[in-house]
């Protein structure tokens, strides 16, 4: 049963990264759009993510609930030592969600719109950035559970160059996902070209920040390379991601929306797989060298079992409905 729950945890993080990520990416793209095209970008973005944005963010809630019901030690450690980045990410979520709704539903269109847009764009950037920082600190062994000193326990547990690099990498990935996703939803050839260009920039951004991640990991003596390339799955996953990236750029000009999306999604999946595989079942590495493990630190048996049933039954309802929602609103917007 523990494995069922872990699978759901992985899946909800994965889906949050893909769907929620594309959602954040839409705001990031807006941020990097010239004034001239902003309105157009905004309209496209709205049409694509409007109906699904609430659902996309539910994956985060599911992941949180799985953590506190199934893995309370892990949840508690995170919420104590990652308090500050979690709050900052939370501010991003609050600002973004409300600004997104406000700018669309405000009955009067005036200067307030500019404010909503600004908030939406910047918080779309901030949220995945801190998500990246939090993720980085779980694997980089920076969480210091023994220190009683404020800086060590609550700041340097997450605030370091490695985390910042991963933060930027996450942002770039989100932008990339969004651009690829939106390419298939554009109305005109011109728009399509614009989003292809954006996808390229974001891809370059991801490569640069990704390299930074490795460089900093090397400098800070985090054995990232060993982790990822030290096992077959890691190597295969990264190779597959690279190959799919090449295919993606070769086919991007063709009108194969679905293929593009699958390729982009596949890449992100492979990256997540490569990162999580080596450590499994350990999910948090602490400064003192100890691990928190999804198996050893799993909660009570009965709690896990009932959680697993709740998730299984829930997904019977959710997945078909979600699929139908996404299906219904694709392309029908015109």
């Amino acid at each position: 049963m523990t494995y069922v729950v872990i699978a759901f945890l992985w899946a909800s993080i994965w889906l949050y990264l893909l769907l929620g990520g594309a959602d954040f990416g839409a705001g990031i793209l807006e941020l990097f759009t010239s004034k001239k095209h902003q309105k157009n970008t905004r309209k496209t973005v709205y049409r694509v993510i409007g109906p699904v944005w609430e659902a996309n963010h539910m994956w985060l809630i599911i992941a949180i609930v799985i953590l506190f019901v199934g893995f309370p030690d892990i949840y508690t450690t995170m919420s104590i030592h990652m308090h500050i980045p979690l709050v900052l990410m939370l501010f991003g979520i609050i600002a973004r969600g409300t600004a997104f709704a406000f700018r669309h539903y405000d009955a009067v269109v005036d200067d307030m719109q500019t404010l909503y847009n600004k908030i939406f764009q910047y918080s779309s950037f901030i949220t995945p950035f801190f998500l990246g920082i939090i993720a980085a600190s779980t694997v980089s062994g920076s969480i210091d559970t023994e220190s009683t000193d404020f800086l060590n326990a609550y700041i340097f547990s997450w605030f370091n160059w490695f985390g910042i690099a991963v933060g930027f990498f996450t942002v770039a990935i989100c932008g990339f996902l969004a651009a690829i996703f939106i390419i298939g939803e554009t109305d005109t050839e011109e728009d399509k070209k614009r989003f292809i260009k954006k996808a390229k920039y974001m891809n370059i951004g991801a490569v640069i920040s990704g390299s930074l991640v490795f460089i900093i990991a090397y400098l800070e003596q985090i054995p990232l390379i060993d982790w990822i390339f030290g096992n077959v799955v890691g190597i295969v996953a990264i190779t597959a991601a690279t190959v799919s990236l090449i295919i993606l750029w070769r086919t991007i000009e063709q009108k194969r929306t679905v293929l593009l999306r699958i390729l982009a999604g596949f890449q992100v999946t492979m990256i997540l797989l490569a990162i999580t595989w080596e450590h499994f079942p350990n999910i948090i590495m602490l400064k003192n060298g100890n691990y928190l493990s999804l198996i050893e630190n799993a909660g009570h048996e009965k709690a896990i079992a009932s959680l697993a049933y709740a998730l299984l039954i829930g997904s019977l309802f959710i997945l078909p409905a979600l699929y139908y929602l996404i299906y219904s609103f694709q392309k029908k917007g015109k």
Partner: peptide, 12 residues
């Protein structure tokens, strides 16, 4: 946690 995990489905 039981109500929370069921609630996830309801929210969704």
């Amino acid at each position: 946690g039981m109500p929370f995990s069921l609630e996830g489905t309801a929210f969704f």
